[in-house]
Amino acid sequence: MGNWVVIAEYYSDVYRTEFVRRGLETKLQALEALRAALFTYVPSKNLVEKRRRVYRFADQETYLVVIKGKLTQWECTLRIAELVSDSADPAVAERERMDGGAAEVAEGPQDRIPPGY
């Protein structure tokens, strides 16, 4: 199972995060899936699309998709993410440590998520 995913984040009565694609093996595969989703992803709700604008953020891994519908306008952020820890599978975190990790460890106190949360 791959550790990379493509997610959509948007506000629809409440803030939501939706997995668009899961189980991608590499960052390159995730970026390809992200770029494919830019022009095909539609929200869960019914929306008659009249126009779609796609904006790329400077990090090259995050996009803002703005869909103008018949009556409303809808915005979402599409991005990739890597699974680095899973309380149900400690091997995920161990693999991340062995690979050197994508993120650097910050100095000073850090938040800790309790096991099973």
Rank of each mutant, 00 (worst) to 15 (best):
residue 83 L to K: 12
residue 112 R to N: 13
residue 48 V to M: 09
residue 9 E to Y: 07
residue 21 R to S: 08
residue 32 E to D: 14
residue 76 C to T: 09
residue 55 Y to K: 03
residue 116 G to E: 04
residue 110 Q to F: 00
residue 62 T to H: 02
residue 61 E to C: 00
residue 57 F to A: 09
residue 16 R to N: 03
residue 105 V to H: 11
residue 23 G to W: 12
residue 55 Y to Q: 01
residue 99 D to F: 09
residue 87 S to Y: 13
residue 83 L to M: 15
residue 35 R to I: 09
residue 40 T to K: 03
residue 40 T to G: 03
residue 34 L to S: 06
residue 17 T to L: 03
residue 8 A to R: 08
residue 7 I to R: 14
residue 79 R to A: 02
residue 12 S to V: 15
residue 22 R to Q: 01
residue 50 K to F: 12
residue 55 Y to A: 05
residue 59 D to Q: 03
residue 59 D to G: 02
residue 36 A to C: 01
residue 1 M to W: 00
residue 108 G to D: 11
residue 10 Y to P: 12
residue 80 I to P: 05
residue 82 E to D: 10
residue 106 A to M: 00
residue 109 P to T: 13
residue 28 L to Q: 14
residue 45 K to F: 15
residue 82 E to G: 13
residue 102 A to F: 05
residue 24 L to P: 04
residue 49 E to A: 14
residue 14 V to H: 13
residue 1 M to V: 15
residue 10 Y to K: 09
residue 96 E to P: 06
residue 104 E to L: 07
residue 77 T to D: 03
residue 36 A to R: 06
residue 30 A to H: 14
residue 36 A to H: 11
residue 15 Y to E: 08
residue 38 L to D: 00
residue 72 T to G: 08
residue 49 E to C: 08
residue 90 P to C: 03
residue 2 G to I: 04
residue 42 V to E: 07
residue 25 E to H: 08
residue 5 V to N: 12
residue 26 T to C: 11
residue 25 E to P: 02
residue 44 S to T: 04
residue 58 A to M: 06
residue 57 F to E: 14
residue 16 R to T: 02
residue 103 A to F: 13
residue 42 V to A: 09
residue 81 A to K: 14
residue 46 N to T: 06
residue 46 N to A: 14
residue 18 E to K: 11
residue 86 D to Q: 02
residue 52 R to W: 11
residue 7 I to C: 12
residue 92 V to W: 01
residue 100 G to W: 01
residue 79 R to P: 02
residue 61 E to K: 14
residue 27 K to D: 12
residue 93 A to F: 03
residue 30 A to K: 05
residue 17 T to Y: 06
residue 77 T to Y: 13
residue 103 A to H: 13
residue 20 V to G: 09
residue 101 G to T: 00
residue 25 E to L: 10
residue 101 G to E: 05
residue 30 A to D: 08
residue 25 E to I: 07
residue 96 E to T: 10
residue 35 R to F: 13
residue 23 G to D: 09
residue 41 Y to G: 01
residue 92 V to P: 00
residue 55 Y to S: 09
residue 36 A to Q: 15
residue 62 T to E: 02
residue 51 R to L: 03
residue 67 I to N: 11
residue 49 E to P: 08
residue 54 V to A: 10
residue 90 P to G: 06
residue 50 K to D: 11
residue 115 P to N: 06
residue 117 Y to T: 15
residue 40 T to H: 05
residue 69 G to R: 01
residue 89 D to N: 10
residue 51 R to E: 10
residue 30 A to G: 01
residue 5 V to K: 02
residue 76 C to Q: 06
residue 93 A to S: 05
residue 57 F to P: 07
residue 25 E to K: 15
residue 114 P to A: 02
residue 70 K to M: 10
residue 31 L to V: 04
residue 40 T to E: 03
residue 92 V to A: 06
residue 34 L to Y: 00
residue 88 A to S: 01
residue 88 A to D: 02
residue 67 I to K: 10
residue 34 L to H: 07
residue 7 I to M: 07
residue 5 V to L: 12
residue 34 L to T: 02
